[in-house]
Design a protein around this nucleic acid. Structure first.
Length: 488
RNA sequence: GCCCCCAUCGUCUAGUGGCCCAGGACGCCGCCCUUUCAAGGCGGAGAUCAGGGGUUCGAAUCCCCUUGGGGGUACCA
């Protein structure tokens, strides 16, 4: 039997980074076993639908390189892949459940449900439905029906016994049936709830393994019971450890922007995020951190998945992204630099960006980045007419008490630069270091002065390379501008 | 409250009875290199394996209890 897995996101907003991790694990599992990865949209909560969300999910998968074998965009033999288009299926199956007595219609109003709950709370009982409609006589049922109430359909869970979940990661987990709720299977609007739709769809889509977040483990016995009531074989369940924030609570908006899109916008590389996410709850061995897609596919399996939740470490993600940026071929990095420059710079500056100038400076930048979004701020000085900074920044620690020394140094540098015929970075640096030597200044202490004059900031790409890219005239102009700032 | 899961350096983890007075990585610190800042190289601090009981010749690894953390408990998914 070929392995078939799925992810089943609900289109209720921008996809979450956790959804990406679940998708990745499913995709990896499918690829490792030569199986299929399907995408199904769980859009049964009509009130929470967000337009565009399905497209965002598609984009996320594509960006990460997790192309589905079946799903809304690609189709497939088990469609449709929107639950809202599979309603007749759910209605058909709910009839079997109703007919064999494992489900019943419930006419209780939301108000009564709330009242029951508050009453139970008062008596220090666990909240839940009191199963009032489970015991309705045919007459009572007919009466309620005549009253025009739109009923829901509830599952009639066994009142005793134990349901055992065989989880591929957690092992054997037992649940007492008596503690389970008569969950709603069909809502009064005619749409199924998650619990029912997931069982019906996973069955008809021939899903063999359900890899989903740990938060679903408590509802798995219910799902198992539904499979049994219809007479279907259940898939293998594997509950993935949760991703936590710094405070060890389930990662969510309050830990910052956890929308997948935020990671794209920040300038993470797809391969880096793929690698990092793949290591969130799974490890290859005792030492390997940087793992290629091929290696992941080859090595990934359920056996390596950890049972305990993992805190999302942004520091490590940034480090990993830097590793991937560093490993990029020079040409690729230059192309990305240009792309991000055009995207992040204001239009009037972006117009001045040329492939030549970017290719020239990009190698100097490549080891100095954690995120691609840092490119524009670091290279902006190349495209501006002039840079702005204050006197204190220019003088830095070294020259604060001796501004005249900074002034003379810059004047001499300007003079030396004038004499350069072949304007390239080595010659520029020779000229600058000549001045430093004459004045017995160590580059370590004097260089920031020049950095500020040229780029506006005391650190960044090597200043001589920056000047080479800037051009002779503009470079000297900036040194002179610094001189005049100090002369005032 | 009740049910369930989890528990190795701050964080991600390796570890499935002896190779572990616990290995790697991020982060942190120091040194070297050096055109500032990075990168790179080298080194360091950092975990009595949550605590307590067992089992065993021997336990981070098995069992029990405690504690801690998390998740679930909707006509949301």
């Amino acid at each position: 039997m070929t392995v078939r897995v799925r992810i089943a996101p609900s289109p209720t907003g921008e996809p979450h980074i956790g959804t990406a991790r679940t998708a990745l694990f499913n995709w990896l599992f499918a690829r490792h076993h030569g199986g299929q990865f399907v995408v199904r949209i769980e859009d049964t909560d009509r009130s929470r639908l967000v337009p565009g969300a399905v497209e965002s999910i598609r984009l996320m998968l594509r960006w990460l390189g997790l192309e589905p074998d079946e799903g809304p965009a690609v189709g497939g033999p088990c469609g449709p892949y929107f639950q809202s288009e599979r309603l007749d299926l759910y209605h058909r199956e709910i009839e079997t459940l109703l007919a064999n007595g494992s489900a019943y219609t419930c006419y209780c109003s939301p108000e009564r449900l709330a009242a029951v709950n508050s009453e139970r709370q008062k008596q220090k009982l666990p909240p839940g439905y009191d199963r009032r409609c489970r015991g309705l006589s045919p007459d009572e049922r007919a009466a309620a029906e005549a009253g025009g109430v739109k009923p829901v359909v509830r599952f009639a869970v066994p009142l005793d016994g134990v349901t055992v979940v065989q989880d591929a990661i957690k092992g054997e987990v037992e649940f007492e049936n008596a503690l389970l709720q008569d969950a709603v299977l069909m809502k009064s609007d005619g749409y199924p709830t998650y619990h029912f739709a997931v069982v019906v769809d996973d069955h008809f889509m021939q899903i063999t393994h359900v890899l989903r977040g740990d938060e679903w483990l408590p509802s798995t016995p219910l799902h198992l019971l539904i499979y049994r009531a219809i007479g279907w074989e259940a898939p293998v369940f594997a509950h993935l450890p949760l991703i936590l924030g710094k405070d060890r609570a389930k990662l969510s908006k309050r830990h910052g922007d956890t929308a997948f899109k935020a990671f794209v916008d920040a300038g993470y590389l797809p391969d880096a995020l793929f690698n990092f996410l793949g290591l969130l709850g799974w490890a290859l061995d005792d030492k390997t951190e940087i793992i290629s897609r091929e290696q992941f596919v080859e090595q990934f399996d359920l056996a390596g998945i950890s049972k305990s939740p993992a805190v999302f470490d942004f520091d490590k993600l940034r480090w990993m992204n830097r590793e991937y940026i560093h490993a990029l071929p020079a040409e690729r990095f230059a192309a990305l630099s240009e792309e991000w420059l055009l995207k992040d710079l204001p239009d009037e500056l972006a117009q001045r960006v040329t492939p030549e100038i970017v290719r020239r400076i990009a190698p100097e930048l490549q080891t100095r980045l954690e995120l691609l979004s840092e490119i524009a701020p670091k290279l902006r000085f190349l495209f501006e007419d002039d840079v702005t900074y204050d006197r204190a920044t220019l003088l830095g620690k070294r020259f604060t008490s001796r501004p005249e020394e900074a002034l003379f140094t810059l004047e001499e540098i300007a003079a030396e630069l004038e004499d350069i015929e072949d304007w390239e970075k080595d010659g520029i640096w020779e000229a600058v270091s000549r001045v430093f030597e004459q004045r017995t200044l160590k580059p370590r202490e004097a260089a920031p002065l020049l950095y500020v004059a040229i780029t506006g900031a005391p650190q960044g790409v090597p200043v001589n390379a920056g000047m080479a890219a800037l051009g002779k005239r503009r470079s000297i102009q900036r040194v002179k501008a610094a001189v005049s700032l100090l002369s005032d």
